[in-house]
Design a protein around this nucleic acid. Structure first.
Ligand SMILES: [Mn+2]
Ligand SMILES: [Mn+2]
Length: 583
DNA sequence: AGGGGGTCTG
DNA sequence: TTCACACAATCTG
DNA sequence: GATTGTGTGTCTCAGACCCCCTGA
């Protein structure tokens, strides 16, 4: 084989790989540092300030290397994998950031760290192992090597490769804290800069003056980190007595931190419950303000056969329900409890009857999601099969997100911290709607005239592709939107939207699987598909009942496979409630 | 050699 | 920091 | 029937790369 052929066969045609500008990471890290320095001027500790100052005074290449390491995953990097354009071509003989101990260019690596840096083939070559080890599975190789090599060595002492070295990032604690100060959470990372700059994700632009800082005091920062530790301990199955002592005291000066704290307490109570320690769980639930805590307390009390206590809690919950779910569960539990106590069951309106019909389909079960089969079956008889769509929550959420775009991204204090928000920070907080009531009123008022169609189309075109918690762009197209605007009455839109803002977290999900449009008649219906063995979920039931109360055309389609025997479901009185599949 | 799963990349 | 589904196990009346 | 918990498939940004498996 000639060299040319080898070269041609090993050459990988590189599709347009996005390239980052020279010193890309440095520029962004400097932006971050100056943001943090000015925003947290009053809160930074001496060693954090010292780091910032030392960084800013270091020479270009030195800064670029550190910035590159901070903003990428991991804390060990092979020099040969870092492009010159990222950090510059030459390195100073004496690097002040290395001398200060922020970075090391000769870290001692154990065999496992070395293995993380090299492929299996490279590892075998570097360690001068017999060629046959390259055929071992990597896990076996790792076990064998761990037993053979127990010492830590500099990379250049492990490998005879003179051209390469390894850098280690040693300031991880400070950088992790800066990440927290910048993003206000611990799930976002510096890679958001990259994905945003490459236009992989587009974020709504929030005016700088509307940005706030997530932490107002040093104590809040410490409390957040404490909560994070507790969450990790909880996952590790730490003894609860120890864990409970770790939980911070009530946080009076930050709503969202206190909510995080309550969420942690709820999680700990949940673990108590699972471990069978009902007493402790109940006590924690009763003191916990996290959504759902009171519901759990009701369940535990009724399980303990404390009927009086259960009833008292139920009545309290019914008078002031924390959520639709709580109300639903109280409605189910309270009659049973009253029965136990010999009290007359409080009269409730009977649950509305959800229209349903049955569809008998051929074909193998499980071949494809049953929703698609029903969609295609319904589409068969239509001129335009596209008018039946499998949308689930996507469509109504998108309409809501488009009409209410200005409210969702309203510059509320404490909602936006940086340029990478998919949603305001308090979206799921329970205060979300109240803090934007006026903005939502403006948006909803468009529904009183035909104006809302224009508003939705305008936002659709103007904001296309921008991340939103309610709009998933790839599941939207113009035809779908057009039919939705033609066929959904404004009153129905308003009812759905009010349902969503009532409890964003809980009520944005549960919409039926399919939507069918009759554009000529400006008519629609929603269909929840249920395969055999699938029953209506609680949140679907709540939404369907709400829709029925607003006289919307919703129904449930029960699917039966043609080779199966008819279910008893169709044998009893329910048959009469069926509505035909057509119309 | 080729496919699938997982991870990293920009 | 998904959501919905399929299925199993358990308890209750 | 109610309830809870489990696993799974779907979504993730697409493509390159690594590792492992299968089967000629
Ligand atoms: Mn569904
Ligand atoms: Mn369904």
């Amino acid at each position: 084989m000639s060299r040319g052929i080898i070269a041609a066969s090993t050459y990988k045609a590189r599709l347009p790989v996005p390239a980052l500008a020279p010193f890309y990471y440095l520029k962004n890290f400097e932006r971050v540092l100056s943001t943090i320095a000015s925003r947290y001027e009053d809160l930074l500790l001496a060693h954090e300030l010292r780091f910032i100052t030392a960084f800013q005074q270091a020479p270009l290449n030195s800064r670029a290397l550190l910035a590159r390491m901070v903003m990428r995953q991991g804390d060990l990097f092979r020099a040969s994998k870092i492009e010159y354009s990222e950090i510059g071509e030459t390195r100073a003989a004496a690097d002040p950031l290395i001398e200060a101990g922020w970075v090391s260019d000769r870290p001692l690596l154990d065999i496992k760290q070395l293995q993380g840096l090299l492929t299996k083939a490279e590892l075998v070559r570097c360690l001068k192992l017999p060629r046959r080890y390259a055929d071992w599975r990597k896990a076996d190789l790792q076990a064998m090597l761990a037993a053979t090599f127990t010492e830590r060595r500099d990379f250049r002492d492990w490998c005879a490769d003179p051209g390469d070295l390894v850098y280690a990032l040693l300031v991880t604690p400070v950088c992790e804290r800066f990440r927290l100060l910048f993003f206000g959470n611990d799930w976002q990372s510096w890679t958001d800069f990259v994905t945003a700059d490459l236009k992989i994700f587009n974020f709504e632009k929030i005016a700088q003056h509307a940005h706030s800082r997530p932490f107002q005091t040093r104590a809040q920062i410490d409390q957040f980190q404490r909560l994070r530790e507790c969450r990790e301990l909880l996952l590790d199955g730490t003894p609860y007595s120890e864990l409970v002592r770790m939980v911070p005291e009530a946080i009076g000066d930050s709503d969202w931190l206190e909510e995080e704290r309550q969420k942690l307490i709820f999680g700990i109570a949940r673990e108590h419950e699972r471990a069978g320690d009902t007493q402790a769980a109940l006590a924690m639930y009763l003191r916990c303000t996290h959504r759902g805590a009171r519901t759990r307390a009701i369940v535990l009390k009724s399980r303990a056969r404390d009927w009086e206590g259960t009833r008292a809690l139920c009545l309290k919950a019914r008078a002031n329900p924390a959520s639709e779910e709580e109300l639903q569960r109280v409605r189910r539990i309270l009659p049973r409890v009253c029965l136990k106590l010999g009290l007359p069951a409080t009269s409730e309106d009977p649950a509305p009857v959800i229209p349903e019909f049955e569809l008998v389909l051929d074909g193998r079960p499980r071949a494809r999601a049953v929703e698609y089969l029903v969609r295609d079956h319904l589409a068969l008889e239509l001129v335009d099969g596209d008018t039946v769509r499998y949308v689930e929550n996507g469509l109504v959420n998108a309409l809501f997100g488009l009409l209410c775009w200005p409210a969702v991204f309203a510059p509320v204090a404490g909602a936006f911290f940086h340029d990478f928000h998919r949603a305001p920070a308090d979206l799921a907080s329970g205060h979300f709607y109240n803090r934007r009531k006026n903005d939502f009123e403006v948006c909803f008022s468009h529904l009183e005239t035909d104006h809302y169609r224009k508003v939705i189309w305008t936002v659709f075109k103007k904001k296309w592709g921008i991340q939103s918690p309610f709009v998933r762009w790839h599941s939207l197209d113009r035809a779908l939107l057009q039919w939705a605007l033609d066929c959904f009455p404004a009153a129905h839109l308003r009812a759905w939207f009010e349902w969503i803002v009532r409890d964003v977290r809980e009520n944005r999900a549960g919409f039926p699987d399919l939507v069918q449009f009759w554009p000529a008649e400006r008519r629609y219906r929603l269909i929840e598909v249920k395969g055999p063995g699938d029953r209506i979920q609680d949140n679907q039931k709540r939404l369907l009942e709400y829709c029925l109360a607003h006289r919307m055309p919703v129904s449930v389609c029960y699917v039966r496979w043609s080779q199966d025997r008819p279910e008893s479901r169709s044998a009893d009185g329910k048959q009469s409630r069926r509505i035909p599949a057509e119309n």
